[in-house]
Simulated assay, not measured.
Amino acid sequence: MDVPGRFSRNAGERYSSMLDYSFRDLESIGEIEFLKPRKGLRPYKCSASCGLYMCNAWRMNNNRLTNIRGIVSTAFNLLDRPEHLTWLDLSFNKITHLTNEIAMFPSLRVLYLHSNLLAEFELCLRHLVQIGSLYSLTLHDNLLDKDVNYRNKIVLRLKQIELLDFTRINEEERKRVHFYGRIRGVKNVAFQRNHQLH
Rank of each mutant, 00 (worst) to 15 (best):
G132D: 02
R126N: 11
I95V: 11
R69F: 06
K94S: 12
H84R: 12
L139K: 07
N149C: 13
N62A: 12
D145Q: 07
Y112A: 12
V155S: 12
L143T: 10
K94L: 09
I169Y: 09
F166R: 14
T167K: 15
K159I: 00
L144E: 01
I102Y: 02
D165C: 02
W58F: 14
N116R: 05
I154C: 11
N152V: 00
L85R: 07
W58D: 04
A75G: 10
I68H: 07
L158T: 01
L90T: 03
I161A: 08
T99C: 10
F92I: 00
K159D: 04
I154F: 08
S107D: 09
L163H: 14
L163I: 15
L143Q: 14
P82H: 01
E120V: 02
A119V: 00
I95T: 02
T66P: 07
V148W: 07
N100W: 02
A75F: 06
N77G: 12
H97L: 04
T86W: 03
T167E: 13
A75N: 09
R109M: 01
H140V: 00
K159Q: 14
L123E: 15
L134R: 02
I68S: 11
L123Q: 14
K153A: 10
H97F: 13
M60L: 15
R81A: 13
E122I: 00
I169R: 10
R59F: 11
L128K: 04
Y150Q: 08
D141W: 05
P82L: 00
